[in-house]
Amino acid sequence: MEYLLSLLPAMLAGTTITLKLFFLTLIMSLPLGVVGAIARMSRFKPLNLLMQLYVWLFRGTPLLLQLLFMYYGLLIAGIRLERFTAAVLAFVLNYSAYYTEIYRGGIQSIDRGQYEAAHVLGLNRFQTMTRIILPQMFKVVLPPTSNEVINLIKDTALIYAIGVSELLRVAKTAAVRDFSGTPFLVAAVFYLIMTGLIQQFFKWLEKKYDYYG
């Protein structure tokens, strides 16, 4: 018990880093995904192709590779980013690519009749998107979004690889130092609490959006 308590300060500090990366990534990649999806479906060919390339690159390579590239790759090229900055950059780019695809699917699942009704009522494109299409899309994409958000919590452990002291790295340091498995168990509990809370949050959101058929 005393040992457990002695672990907590460092573990909590690691969790803070983990959560910081988590929230920064979400705050940026969720809205960027909406923009990305709209750009990805643009009738302007160059933009459309550019977005296809972007999505392909970031979904088609391991996040770990992207992370290593943003830090070590750029470092070798003479661009020195803070470790945490490099992590945020890699995560935002990677997750925005996933959200772009999720939202694109969501937008495409909305019936064409909705656009037509908005059009004959005189709504312009922007109003149609923000008032009619996107609100309905959010409901459709909630389940896949929630999956990705849970993945994100787990993926934060990857920044271990560029030497940022997030939760898992703290646990491993303690485990090696004390020759004990306990720190890993504590880390697992921390992750489970975080993913559990996220699950509850999305359950609540889905219920909230359940007000229409």
């Binding site: 019936d111 009749g113 909705q114 037509e116 009704a117 004959v120 009522l121 005189g122 709504l123 109003q127 008032r131 009619i132 609100p135 309905q136 409901k139 229409y212 058929g213």
Partner: peptide, 30 residues
Amino acid sequence: KRKMGMVFQNFNLFPHKSVRENLMLAPVLV
């Protein structure tokens, strides 16, 4: 086009909006 109203075979009501909101949306926005 605002002089034209159109009613579709499949109604195309906005499912996420109440009846009141369906009716008020365009008059307020447009």
